[in-house]
Every structure is written in C-alpha cells, then in structure tokens.
Design a binder for these strands. Structure first.
Length: 478
RNA sequence: GGCCCCAUCGUCUAAUGGUAAGGACAGAUGGUUCUCAGCCAUCAGAUACGGGUUCAAAUCCCGUUGGGGCUACCA
C-alpha cells in the first residue's frame, strides 16, 4: 500500500511551491490507490501559528486536494501535528542514547560559533568536530554542575550513502562531509530532520516526495532511519519552483501564496491544472486536464529534474480559459463576493436581480481573466457611468448629438425591446442615412456605458432596458 | 569555500541515438466583428560552450561555464 505525505510548516500561507509538492503527492497517491497524509510540522514554536495551519488546510481544500489522514480528521497513525508528538520523539531519542547512536553535547552557542570560525579560517569543513562524543565522566559532571544545557547529536559514521531517487536516479554522498548533527534541541524538542524520520517511520510512509531542497538532507535522514532500525522509504525529489529571476520563488517576486491567487478570483481547477504543468508534462504536450485526467496520467518518472519558473502570465491565461468555459451559474456565485465588495450589489438578491447580474456577467464572460475584474467590467449596469472628459470631447459633438437624438426616437419606438430588434432598427437607420455603422455605434456605446470598450452593443442596450438607455443618451446630448 | 542537483525558444514543455527540433503562454502580423475580448491564420523564437563515443548525438561520456540547493539547537 502506497502511503505518501505532505508536511507543511504552519509559518505562513500555503506557498505555491508547497502546493505543487502537495499536488504531486496527492496525484501519486490517487494514481496508485494509496493514502495521502497531511502532517503539520510545527516544532518551531517561534514561527508556527495556529492560524496558518487553518489557512493551509483551507487552501488545500479549496484546491481540491483531499487527504485520508490528517490533524483535522485523524487516522490510525496520529496525532498528525508534530507538537503533539513530542513524547514520541523523546522516547526514540532516549532509546538511541541508550543504544549509543547519539550522545549529549554540552557545547554553548559561543563555542560552536568559535569552532565554525576556526574551521573556516583553516579551510576545513565548517561542521561540528565531535568534541563531546567521548567526554570524561568528570567533564560531564562538571558541565552538569554548571547547569549547561545539552543537545543530542547523532554519531555520524564515515560511510558512503547512496540514494536511488525516483526522479534523479542514483545520487551518492561521500561519507566524510557530514558531521554529527543535532537531533534533539536543548529545549527537548526534536529538530526537523529527526522528527520527519520518526514520523515517516511511524506513519508507514512508503514514498517521500518532496522538494529538491531536501535532497542534501536525505543522507541525514537515512542515517536516522538506520539508527532507529527502520526500513528506508523510496525518495523522489521534485525540482524547485522558481521566480522569474530563477531564484527560489519568494515574497520578493510578488504574490507567492495560494491564498493571494484565490483572493483575486482564480478558479481552483485552473490553479490546480497550471501547477501540475510545472516540472511535468505528457508526451502529447497536452495542457488542459481535469483532476481525474491528471490522476490518470500522472507519473513520477516523467517529473523534470530541472527547476521550473512560475509564470503568472500563463496562469492568468489558463484561468481566463477556464472561466470562458465555466457555466454562468458558477461564475455568478463566485463573483458575488467581489461585487459586494465593490459595493455594486447588496444582499438580499432577489430572483430578478440575480437574473440581471447573470446576464451582465454573461455579456462580459469571455473577457474575464480573474473574478476580481468582474465588478469593473459590468459596473455601468449598476450605476450611472462617469463620462471621462477627454473621451467625451472626442466623441460627443454636434454631429453625433444629432445622430443620438434620432436614435432616441428610434429606440423609443421599439416595442419588443430585444437586441435583434434593436440591431435591425439601428442598422436600418444607418442605411437610410447612408452612414457607416461605426459612426453611430461608437457614440451610442459611449453614451450608454461611458466607455469606448465594452460588451456587445445591442445586448448591452437590451439588458439596460429602454428607459435607462434613453435616459443615459439624453443626459449626454443635453 | 565544501558537498549535492540541474541545463531544449523569453517562460512551461515534447522529442529518451535517426524529426524540417513539435506544442502552449507571452510577442508580432493579418482576418472576423459595433469597440474590447474571443476566435482563426501566419510569422518570429531554443538544444549554454568545448571535447569525445557513434555511420548517426538535444539524447551517451568527460570537461568548462552558468543556475539552484544544503552546509543552524529553521523547516
């Protein structure tokens, strides 16, 4: 049974790169009929925040990534929050101490710093020199008397470590580069490296799929797996997600959280689809996938080794693509918060109003890239347009005023105020007068909407209604 | 600095020894239409570099260069 996990730290909102890691784990689990586990790595008390845990869970759900075991739903291998597993790590650490795999290190921060500096000056590797490995009884009791804190360090053997990575193939680390690293901090909490391994072991994780930034940590993990007598899982190190300058995607690059995109009105399926394309592709170069198709077609072997630049432009395009082919009912539902926020609509919305809003959105649907733009695009259906002075002077002149005056008469005479009817009558007028349609259409559009760009002219007039349309034209030619 | 990973159009990718190096986004041009958008068509644009191996290399090997990661009592 395949068991994979996504293990975020609740130190911020769900990051795009992490969302991609979660997605690939999820796809791998579903594809292989395995389990996907969510584990919260909150051992860093300083930076971890409950609110971020909640936010991460919300955003994963929003993306449509569901887990089979996790802090919110439990499971047989819980708890799924590292802060609730401290005793477990302590037990494992104690056992390792008894077995002689780890030892107490009493070095102070200053001593460590000095050690590092000296090593650097001599051009040696900067790690810990293992001086506390074989402390005399006297030295230990002296340190104890001084009340010095201690950490637990693993006795790192000088051995070659090989990883058979599912994405990268064979990776070899020569033994002499690793120094005795800390597994338990002086406050009695585990380091990341230790907690991950204990958890992966206890949670029976079969495949560790994570970012390439953890590749260099993997030898440490393997050493710990060996020390606790656990079987070593399969590893798959995914390429990193980069910003446009090819450095790790971070705040400097602008919006990097899933939340930020969600709030702007991206559709979850578009986001899901887009990030699946980062560092992965099919032979057919297919790009649009439903979740089911992705589960079906996903394969870890096809994951790219090279890191991928996150391209907001393409995400934007993909979102607009999804919006165009989504039914109006859903677009309407999702647009409501944005419309409310813009002050264009208020609850409660009656049937008639709902219909009106839907028709307005429909008229502009093909132009929507993100839902956040909806209020701006349909604003003039809800409030009187503001006529920009520069455009007004350019478009409204004695000649166009005269035309508009005549259009008012025509519109007023239409009983069946439907766009087909309106279009026919206005085109007839153009023909009679022998003027180009654009001579009439442009001022009319401007008079009715206050804009030079907008939806289908006749659809717009129809929706606005005879009264409103005529009122607006009159105001302009007054 | 040491160790590890990586390298196809600007970006995401396809081609896993034999292709005119294909597609998508972005860009440019033209068409369609009442504007914008959309849609359609066309164009431009890449195998980082240098050596091998081979009849044949984007593809295999070595080196160079460039990028990224790790090197914490962060995760």
């Amino acid at each position: 049974m395949v068991r994979v996990r996504f293990a975020p730290s609740p130190t911020g909102f769900l990051h795009i790169g992490n969302a991609r890691t979660a997605l690939f784990n999820y796809l791998f689990a579903r594809k292989n009929k395995g389990k996907f586990i969510l584990r919260i790595e909150d051992t860093d008390k300083e930076r971890s925040k409950k609110e971020y845990e909640i936010a991460i869970i919300e955003d994963l759900k929003w993306l449509g990534i569901e887990w089979d075991e996790g802090p919110d739903i439990g499971g047989t291998y819980g708890p799924y929050r590292q802060s609730e597993r401290i005793d477990i790590y302590k037990d494992f650490a104690e056992k390792l101490l008894k077995q002689g795999f780890v030892y107490k290190c009493y070095c102070t921060k200053q001593e460590l710093e000095k050690m590092r500096q000296e090593a650097e000056e001599k051009g040696l590797r900067p790690g810990y020199d293992g001086r506390c490995r074989n402390l005399t009884k006297e030295k230990i009791s002296q340190y104890e008397k001084e009340g010095r804190d201690f950490v637990l360090r693993l006795k790192v053997p000088e051995e070659k470590i090989e990883i058979n990575d599912l994405i990268r193939g064979k990776v070899v680390f020569e033994g002499e580069h690793l120094t005795d690293f800390v597994i338990m901090k002086s406050d009695g909490t585990p380091t990341f490296n230790f907690a991950v391994v204990v958890d992966d072991y206890l949670m029976k994780i079969t495949h560790v799929i994570r970012g390439e930034d953890h590749l260099s940590n993997t030898p440490k993990h393997i050493l710990i797996f060996k020390a606790i007598g656990a079987e070593i899982p399969q590893f798959a190190h995914m390429s990193m997600t980069l910003g446009p300058d090819r450095t790790r995607l971070s705040k400097r690059h602008g919006a990097t959280s899933v939340r930020a995109y969600r709030e702007q009105g991206y559709l979850p399926e578009a986001f899901f689809n887009y990030i699946s394309l980062l560092g992965w592709g099919t032979t057919e170069s297919k790009e649009i996938f439903t979740k089911e198709e992705l589960i079906n077609e996903f394969s870890i072997e096809r994951c790219h080794k090279a890191s991928a630049v996150f391209d907001p432009e393409k995400l934007l395009w993909m979102n607009s693509f999804y919006i165009r082919r989504t039914d109006i009912e859903r677009i309407y539902q999702l647009s409501i918060p944005f419309l409310k926020q813009a002050g264009l609509i208020e609850e409660p919305i009656n049937k008639e109003k709902e219909e009106y809003i839907k028709r307005a959105i429909s008229l502009e649907q093909e132009k929507i890239k993100i839902l956040k733009e909806v209020p701006f695009l349909i604003e003039f259906f809800f409030k009187e347009p503001e006529y920009e002075k520069e455009n007004f002077e350019k478009i409204i002149n004695p000649e166009t005023k005269k035309i508009l005056e005549e259009i008012v008469v025509i519109l007023d005479g239409i009983d069946n105020f439907r766009k087909q009817e309106i279009e026919i009558k206005i085109r007839d007028y153009c023909k009679e007068k022998g003027v180009k349609t654009s001579i009439v259409f442009h001022p009319l559009r401007f008079a009715v909407s206050g804009r030079t760009k907008g939806p289908d002219l006749f659809g717009m007039i129809e929706l606005l209604g005879k009264e409103k349309t005529i009122e607006r034209i009159r105001k302009v030619i007054m």
